[in-house]
């Protein structure tokens, strides 16, 4: 058979030319081990982020200021759960099992987006999360819609469609707060003060310090660099903050006429590394909540399986009789 005659190099070359020609890679196609591993890591971490991302908002489900806001927040959280599912399913097509991925999350072996290790202290935080955190996520995910791996790209298209409501509802909360009482306006400013920099950290390290970037670009898993996406987000978001009459907490922020985009300060990378290393304000609490939820749901999964088993047996007995 031709497959056996082909050396790994030839397969890899054929793979790369397929990627270069913008053809999608599908689950059963040959792919280099590194490509598979990178995708499993990235997609499972992305899925974990969606799932853990439900937790900071869950805190506000019973505290949201009106029935309307509670219903909206519930719908948003449901979406995040769904996004986790799309991504886990897409990752499973690469041969990793759901249970393995859960275990990696629960043991702390796999990371999730550090942004969710920050606490949600006042109601405006829910607005800021929708506007800034989902806004940053969308910027990232729009680029991923063109990823070379078919199932990942398709999941991203679906996620992006749904996320647009998340950002708009968040911004609407910010509009209401920014135009409310003096105290409400202060809450809105307090929220942007705390969420601005962590949102910029969501795009990851500078390109020159990013370990996985160049290979991922070559494989077209990643289509746009961290710094470029971050700049895109800043340029889109600063005018939105101005419209709200809120201040972006960066004294170096200034419009650069020549490059037609914003100059801005430097991220506190010590803080970034510290939160990634597990020492953020909520790392332990988030993981514990996630583990408890999984263990707490075990009896439901067991009961559902036992019920399915029983139904199957009954049907078989009825058939035999």
């Amino acid at each position: 058979m031709t497959v056996i005659d082909n050396t790994n190099d030839q397969l890899e070359q054929a793979f790369q030319s397929k990627v270069d020609a913008e053809l999608k890679i599908e689950p059963k196609d040959w792919m280099p081990d590194g490509y598979r591993k990178t995708l499993v890591r990235q997609m499972s971490q992305h899925a974990h982020s969606e799932v853990v991302g439900m937790l900071p908002e869950g805190n506000w489900l019973t505290r949201a200021p009106s029935l309307k806001r509670k219903a909206i927040l519930m719908a948003k959280i449901q979406d995040e759960g769904g996004h986790g599912l799309y991504l886990y399913s897409a990752a499973e097509t690469l041969g990793v099992s759901r249970d393995e991925m859960y275990e990696q999350l629960h043991t702390g072996k796999a990371k999730y987006s550090s942004i969710f290790n920050y606490p949600t202290l006042n109601w405006a935080d829910i607005g800021a999360i929708g506007w800034l955190v989902d806004g940053a996520a969308i910027t990232n995910q729009i680029a991923l819609c063109r990823c070379s791996y078919g199932p990942y790209a398709r999941a991203m298209v679906k996620v992006c469609k749904e996320e647009s409501f998340h950002q708009r509802q968040g911004y609407e909360i910010m509009i209401n707060m920014a135009n409310g009482t003096k105290e409400q306006k202060e809450m809105a400013q307090d929220a942007i003060n705390r969420w601005w920099w962590p949102s910029l950290m969501m795009f990851g390290p500078h390109d020159k310090n990013s370990d996985h970037s160049s290979q991922s670009m070559k494989w077209k898993i990643k289509r746009t660099s961290n710094d470029e996406l971050r700049q895109r987000f800043v340029d889109a978001t600063v005018p939105q903050a101005k419209f709200l009459g809120l201040e972006v907490p960066d004294d170096k922020l200034a419009w650069n006429e020549e490059k037609q985009s914003y100059d801005w300060g430097e991220i506190d990378w010590d803080e970034f590394r510290n939160v990634v290393a597990g020492n953020g304000l909520c790392n332990r609490e988030r993981l514990q909540t996630r583990r408890d939820a999984h263990e707490g749901g075990k009896w439901v999964r067991d009961a559902a399986l036992a019920y399915a088993e029983k139904q199957k047996k009954r049907a078989a007995e009825k058939h035999a009789a």
Partner: peptide
């Protein structure tokens, strides 16, 4: 053994169109 079985999901978005693969999920039955 514990993991719920995997199902593939196909959806007809409106009458007159084919069912189309939408994704997958785990379920007991």
């Amino acid at each position: 053994a514990e993991e719920l079985p995997l199902y593939e999901v196909f959806i007809r978005s409106k009458n007159g169109l084919h069912h189309k693969h939408a994704g997958s999920l785990h379920a007991a039955d």
